[in-house]
């Protein structure tokens, strides 16, 4: 297995992208653990792959592995259907008011 280290700064950058607050002790451990996993998955670099074709995930159906899936994707007709009850949905949220989810202020008054 090749040496591969992930720096604490790379962990911090990735945690910011992932919207995860990590403690300093977590950052050190994460650098070590991620480094080991990345070193292992690096073995894929040795595979001979054809880079010319489009990535399989950009096919029209979600994964490209449903064999007879419709090529045009699945869109239902634009007809109103039964939907979730608003009160029940809001009741599951940590904070709601007047039929809406409440979050900290995002625009300065």
């Amino acid at each position: 297995m090749r040496e591969r280290t992930i720096s604490a700064d790379e962990v911090r950058r990735t945690a910011r992208l992932a919207r995860l607050a990590l403690e300093e002790t977590e950052i050190e451990r994460m650098a070590l653990e991620l480094g080991r996993v990345i070193a292992y998955v690096d073995r894929l670099r040795e595979l001979e792959l054809q880079p010319t074709e489009a990535l399989p995930e950009v096919k029209d159906d979600l994964t490209g592995i449903v064999p007879d899936g419709p090529a045009e994707g699945r869109l239902r007709d634009d007809e109103p259907e039964e939907c979730l009850e608003r009160e029940r949905v809001l009741a599951a949220a940590p904070a709601s008011s007047a039929g809406q989810f409440v979050v900290p202020r995002v625009i300065d008054a």
């Binding site: 992932a18 996993v37 998955v41 670099r45």
Partner: peptide, 26 residues
């Protein structure tokens, strides 16, 4: 958290081709 971090790393700029795209082709 570990898996979210690994997945975010594999998708992030600079690593996407080496990890996520490569895994999809494989």
């Amino acid at each position: 958290k570990r898996r979210i971090m690994l997945g975010t790393y594999a998708l992030s700029a600079g690593y996407y081709d080496a990890y996520f795209a490569r895994a999809q082709r494989a």
